[in-house]
Amino acid sequence: MSDALRQTPELVTLTVNGSVHQVQLDSRTTLLDALRDHLELSGTKKGCDQGACGACTVLLDGKRIVSCLVLAAQCEGREVTTVEGVTVDGRPHAVQEAFCRHDALQCGYCTPGQVMSAISLLAEGRAGSDDEIREFMSGNLCRCGAYPNIVAAIREVAGQEATSR
């Protein structure tokens, strides 16, 4: 094997919410399973494990991704942010507070993913209208159907007035 190639990692170093963790992992372990099963960060949820529901959304180097379709090993040296890492000085993120106020959740299972996606959406500058919010939040399924309240929560944070559909 070429020197240019690193051997299969067994010990993976992950930087999650600013903390560095070294974990012994099966090379098949996804970031999602590493977070949930090895780092005791169960806020990130598994809803399909196929990249289709968005419940496992986290930020990787500041961009939202689905953590079920990336190996933990792929994330070495990159910054992972989960729902546990978005509070500011112990206070909830503005998106989290808005979700509470607007009842933008019901069973709450998709909610951490929705929150992470919404935080990212705002950073992407894609909360300019209700339609834009709807479109760019469509990768996060909510079977309880909280969508209108999710839109309202994000709209509020974005400081946008409701625009007609």
Binding site: S42, F99, C100, L105, T111
Partner: peptide, 21 residues
């Protein structure tokens, strides 16, 4: 009234059956 368990849910700390180890 705001849902009383909303803060737990938006922070990912509401424990669902799959979250227990």
């Amino acid at each position: 009234l705001d849902r009383v368990d909303a803060p737990l849910k938006v922070s990912g700390s509401a424990p669902y059956p799959s979250d227990f180890t």
